Amino acid sequence: MALGFYSADPSRHTLVEDTQGLVTGALVSGLGFYLLNRVGLLTGGTAGVAFLIHYALNISFGLLFFIVNLPFYYLSFKRLGLAFSAKTFVAIGLVSVITELEQRYLLIGYLHPFWGALMGGLLLGYGLLALYRHRASLGGVGILAIYVQERFGIQAGLIQLAFDACVMAAAFLLLEPQVVFWSIIGAVVLNLFLAINHRSDRYIVVR
């Protein structure tokens, strides 16, 4: 450890390392959400549900993202522990605030949906990777998927995939087919990035 900033154990982090990881991950994730929102796209997981409600009722995405994740905190605490749950709560709170602030301090004149999907997916991937490496996440269905896998033996990945498919299917009721197509592109970019850059044997993965 150097002045309390760095941990000599690569599998553990100091408070300073965790703090910068959570803040950085939240900032980058928030920017990814902002780009998707700017072109009317969505993604999977609880963020996708928040986007759908946001587009349908014109309620703040940041507020919805925070509320939609609330039911999953109990499962997170029971299955993944207090430290993980607390960091995840902080990360989600930061992202919710950041997405609201960006609407005031960041204005983009034009953004093509493809570029929004590509960069939004990549930025979310980078943000989630930073959070994963500090034992945190953006909450959501991944926690429920782990519980169902342990309780009923259904693979967590299948639960996550089925939920995301339902979100995209529901999107066809509210959005134009082309918008859903670009949203799927963004979700694929996000998941490919995480699949390539994240080692599940080293870090906890919950989205």
Rank of each mutant, 00 (worst) to 15 (best):
D18R: 06
F72A: 02
T43N: 06
R12M: 14
T19L: 13
D201T: 13
Y74P: 05
G125I: 09
F84R: 09
G153S: 09
V167K: 00
W115P: 00
T88G: 08
G142A: 07
D9M: 13
V206K: 07
L82V: 14
V188Q: 02
C166M: 15
L129T: 12
L57P: 05
N191L: 12
A162S: 14
A47W: 03
F84G: 12
A170H: 12
L158P: 03
L35E: 02
L194F: 04
G120R: 00
T99S: 10
L35K: 00
N58P: 01
P113D: 11
G40W: 06
N37T: 07
R133Y: 03
L173W: 14
L36M: 12
H13E: 13
Q103F: 07
F89S: 11
F172Q: 05
L63D: 07
R104M: 08
R135H: 09
L94H: 12
K87A: 14
E17F: 12
L128A: 13
A8N: 07
R38Q: 09
E100L: 10
S96M: 05
G186W: 03
P10T: 15
A56K: 15
I92T: 05
R104S: 13
A26W: 02
R12F: 04
R104N: 08
V180E: 01
V141P: 13
Y203W: 09
V28K: 02
V188H: 03
V95C: 02
L31R: 06
R79Y: 12
A171M: 03
H198A: 04
R151W: 08
V188I: 15
I143A: 04
G127F: 00
V68C: 11
G32N: 02
E176P: 10
A56T: 08
A170D: 06
G140S: 07
G109N: 06
G62Y: 08
A187S: 12
W115D: 00
R207G: 13
N191R: 05
A170I: 12
E100W: 07
F181C: 11
V90A: 15
E102H: 07
W115V: 02
G125Q: 02
V180T: 06
S96T: 09
V16F: 15
I92E: 03
G21F: 13
A136V: 11
Q20V: 14
I204R: 08
V205W: 01
E150Q: 15
Y105E: 10
S11N: 06
Y73Q: 11
Y126R: 05
E17H: 05
A91W: 07
V95L: 10
A117P: 10
A86L: 13
V167Q: 00
A130Q: 01
P71T: 09
I53N: 05
R202H: 11
L64V: 03
H134A: 05
F33E: 01
P113S: 12
V188A: 13
S137I: 04
V39Q: 00
G44H: 06
V206E: 15
M119H: 02
Y55N: 00
Y74Q: 03
V28I: 15
G62P: 03
P177G: 04
A47H: 02
L190W: 06
